[in-house]
Design a protein around this nucleic acid. Structure first.
Lengths: 204, 204
DNA sequence: ATAAAATTTAATCATATGATTAAATTATTT
DNA sequence: AAATAATTTAATCATATGATTAAATTTTAT
C-alpha cells in the first residue's frame, strides 16, 4: 500500500493527469485518444488504465479539478466584503483574464463538455450556491434596485471577459490580430470592462 | 446525367445535408458517427459516401453553408446606410438572438470547429472583408474618435448577444432557469443590449 | 540479500467506425 | 418494352482505439 516515492508527489499519477489535461483541453473528450495522453505523459498506454481504469474516469477527474480550481480562485473575490462592487468587477475581470492568458482553451473546452454532459456539473459542483449566495451577487442586486435580473449582469461581465478567448481564432482572422495584438487587446479590456459595466449599470 | 426527380429538389442529397447538420452541430466533428447521420437521414451508410465521398467532405460542405447563411443574414444590416449606429446595433442584436433561438447550438459548434481548423475559415470565407469594410464598422470608428479600437465594440456586441447561448447549459444551472425563463431573458436582452452598448460607447 | 509488493511494459483482444464493393432495385430514355 | 443510367442496399474490409493480460522490471520491506 505504501508509495514508491513517498517524498515526491505521486509523480506518475500527476504526470498522467497533467498530460490528460493538455490533450483533453486541446481536443475535447471525443477527439482525444488515450494513446495521445500516454505519449504526452511519456508513459505506456496500459499504465494509464492501470491508474485511472478508463478514459472517462480520467476525464471526470481532470475536468472536476479544473472547475474546482477555477471556482476556488473566484470564490475569494466574490465574498470579500471589503471590496466595493466596482472593485469586485475589476478583480473578476483581472482574475478571468490572467487565468485565461495561461489557459486560453479552457472556456471552450468546459462549455463544450458541459453541453455534452450537463448533469455532471449539477451533481458534482455547487456552482449555483457559490455564485448566487455571494456577497458580489447581493451588491449587484442592490445596485439594480430590483429593476433588472442581476443574472443579466453576471452574464455581461463574464461575456465581456471570457468571450474574446472563446472567439479568439475568429477574432484573429477578422481583426488580423497577431498573438501579441490579441494580448494587448485583452490587457486593455481588463481596465475597460469595469468602466463599461459601471456605465451599463447606470442605465437602470 | 439527368436527375431522378428533376422537379423536386435533390431530396436525398438535401436530406443527408440536413441530417448531417443536426448531428454535427449536436456532437461536433469528432463525436459524430457517419452511421448516426445516415440514420437521422433515414438512409443507408453507403449512400452517404456515394453522395459526399467522405465524412470530412460532407462536414466541410455543411459547415460552409452554415457560415455563409449566417453571414448573409448579417450583411444586409451591416451595410444599410439608412440606419443609425444605434439602429444597427439593435438590428444586430435582434438578428443574432432570433437566429440563435432557432439554432442555439450553432455558436459553440462553429467556434469549436474553427479552433480545431482555423485555416478553413481563412481560406473559404471573407469574414474579415464583410466585417471591417462594412458601413457599421465605419460608424463605430467615428463614434469612438480613434480613442479605442473599434474591434473592442464588435467583440462587446457579439459577446453580449451570443455568449448567453454558448453558456446556456451553465446558466441554466447557476440561475435555475427553465427553458422558458432563458427565452424570457434572451428577449429582454434584445432590448437592453443597444442601451447598454450606447452607454459603453459614451465612456470614451 | 531475499521476498513481497508496486510499477511498467509489450502483446493482444474486442469493438467501433469510415469506407468500399458488387449486386439489386428503381427511374429514365429510346 | 428493352436498354441504359441512376440510386440504394447488404455485406465486407481495414484501421483506429479503448481496454486487458501476463510477464518483466523496479522498488520497498524484512
Amino acid at each position: 500500500m505504501s508509495k514508491k516515492k513517498p517524498d515526491a508527489d505521486n509523480s506518475t499519477e500527476e504526470k498522467i493527469k497533467a498530460a490528460a489535461n493538455v490533450v483533453f483541453i486541446k481536443k475535447g473528450f471525443a477527439g482525444t485518444r488515450t494513446r495521445d495522453i500516454a505519449e504526452e505523459a511519456g508513459i505506456n498506454l496500459a499504465l494509464l488504465n492501470y491508474y485511472f481504469r478508463s478514459k472517462e474516469k480520467l476525464f471526470d477527474i481532470v475536468m472536476m479539478e479544473n472547475i474546482q480550481q477555477f471556482l476556488a480562485g473566484m470564490r475569494g473575490v466574490l465574498n470579500d466584503e471589503t471590496l466595493s462592487l466596482t472593485a469586485k468587477i475589476t478583480a473578476i475581470a483581472e482574475n478571468y483574464t490572467n487565468m485565461l492568458k495561461i489557459q486560453p482553451n479552457m472556456p471552450l473546452f468546459i462549455l463544450g463538455e458541459i453541453k455534452a454532459n450537463p448533469e455532471k456539473l449539477v451533481t458534482n459542483m455547487k456552482v449555483k450556491e457559490i455564485m448566487i449566495s455571494s456577497h458580489f451577487y447581493q451588491q449587484l442586486k442592490a445596485a439594480l434596485n430590483d429593476k433588472v435580473n442581476p443574472l443579466h449582469f453576471l452574464i455581461n461581465i463574464i461575456s465581456l471577459a471570457v468571450f474574446p478567448f472563446v472567439a479568439s481564432p475568429m477574432l484573429k482572422v477578422i481583426g488580423e490580430l497577431k498573438d501579441a495584438d490579441f494580448d494587448k487587446m485583452v490587457e486593455e479590456r481588463k481596465k475597460m470592462i469595469p468602466v463599461w459595466v459601471d456605465a451599463m449599470l447606470k442605465t437602470h
